[in-house]
């Protein structure tokens, strides 16, 4: 049953990601991202990474996606811009194709070479307990510096955004 769920969610992720990539309407792309993010969260749930799953929903759907949609909606008439504009000739098409093919091959190669795929134990027992405690401990001990630096970066971003958004006329 879990496998069936996995394939459903995987199909949802790929399908909505394809819509995001190929649709001509920017707002459709943004809303398709909703399903991509949601599917990823579902995969996390299947992996018993509950904290990660909920964080995914909160940060990506509640934060980033809302931001994207707002950006798209509030920018004048972006939703009716034809994305195909600026797509010039066959040369760029061929170059883009070559690059994407190379990247694709590289990632597939990487995936099969990665140790966590090849050397992962076959019958891994998923933890039944919450992941929140070990995560919290690790963030507060081993990865404290990274955690704190991330918060500083976010603070800088907030201050910068506030500065930009401020009215300059006073």
């Amino acid at each position: 049953m879990l496998e069936a769920l996995f394939y459903i969610f995987a199909a949802m992720i790929i399908g909505s990601a394809a819509v995001t990539a190929f649709t001509k309407n920017i707002l459709y792309a943004a809303f398709a991202l909703l399903f991509t993010f949601f599917g990823v969260a579902a995969i996390y749930v299947l992996l018993s990474a509950d904290f990660l799953a909920i964080s995914q929903i909160m940060i990506y759907i509640g934060g980033i996606l809302v931001l994207i949609i707002f950006g798209v909606m509030l920018t004048t008439n972006v939703s009716i811009v034809d994305i195909k504009e600026g797509f010039t000739g066959k040369t760029s098409f061929i170059i883009a194709g070559i690059f994407s093919a190379i990247t694709c091959i590289f990632f597939i190669y990487l995936a099969f070479k990665m140790p966590f795929i090849n050397h992962a134990p076959k019958d891994v027992k998923l933890p039944n307990d919450s992941t929140i405690k070990p995560l919290g401990k690790l963030l507060m001990t081993n990865y404290l510096l990274a955690f704190e630096v991330a918060s500083v970066v976010l603070l800088i971003a907030i201050i910068g955004a506030a500065m930009i958004a401020r009215r300059h006329d006073d």
Partner: peptide, 12 residues
């Protein structure tokens, strides 16, 4: 945390 997170669905 879950209740907090799914609130964002309504926003979308």
């Amino acid at each position: 945390f879950f209740v907090f997170a799914v609130g964002s669905f309504a926003v979308i």
